[in-house]
Design a protein around this nucleic acid. Sequence first.
DNA 1: AATGTTGTTGCAAGAATTTGCAATAAGGAC
DNA 2: GTCCTTATTGCAAATTCTTGCAACAACATT
Lengths: 140, 140
Amino acid sequence: MTCSARYAPQLRARGFRMTPQRLTILHVLHHEGTHLSPLNVFKKAVQELPGLTEPTVYRTLEFLAQNGLVRSSHDGSGHLTYEIAAADHHHIVCRICKAEIEVEHSLLAPLYQTLEAASGFTNIDSHVTFFGVCPNCQRQ
Amino acid sequence: MTCSARYAPQLRARGFRMTPQRLTILHVLHHEGTHLSPLNVFKKAVQELPGLTEPTVYRTLEFLAQNGLVRSSHDGSGHLTYEIAAADHHHIVCRICKAEIEVEHSLLAPLYQTLEAASGFTNIDSHVTFFGVCPNCQRQ
DNA sequence: AATGTTGTTGCAAGAATTTGCAATAAGGAC
DNA sequence: GTCCTTATTGCAAATTCTTGCAACAACATT
């Protein structure tokens, strides 16, 4: 199944359109498999679609994140990065060496229920990035 | 106890210095009581300390966060904000109206232990911002 | 109080991100 | 296939954030 065939209906159903720009950006993130900064998305995407501009990339990434096609998270310096939406997971980043591992959402599910019960908020589904010290750096 | 008397020793003990710039920025955050963007910190601080520059504010905020005197978190658009370090807490922000409440850290403590056990990481102490839908917006 | 070390700052330039608006084009209706 | 509506893009400019480096100043030592 092509990217277009999979994603276009998700957008049209909400009154949005599938465009070459969006398709290219989705393709880049899908092919990359991990998170990228907006600028790195731009650099790769503009090679596939000459004429693409930076503002479009920034706007598109935010748009795709709001519509659940990509997921945003934070790198070690607090900047946003984006990755293709896939199995729900979270990250732990080492404060020292920036090494990074993924955490399955199932570990957080109980917390989300607790939070919703305690706060009255619903639909808490944030992708969370935690910071700690990885096993390697602990040894030093 | 003045800000200087309280914070200066914390810095000197690590080989750092207390400066008018740092003191002013701490004073702004302490007086404000909630999080501010770096630019807003600058705008308020430069009134108390003319000549202060933006790069200094950005560097100082990051420095103070690393040393535990202030705490950083993310606003609804993924940008960093800073607040004075106080009782350990987290935030839930409404995705729709941006309303925000604080969550005591004790609710997250069990999760942190689970994460450390599952990942091998230690000292996980991130300040986390969750996003959900607040009770008000649920009614609409 | 004077001195030396080195942590910090300001300046200037550059890079990253956002915004407004006119031009364009996706896709539904005919 | 053609037309229309309006979502989307590109352009240009503004704003926000970062970086390198020389000048400065905190503060420990004497």
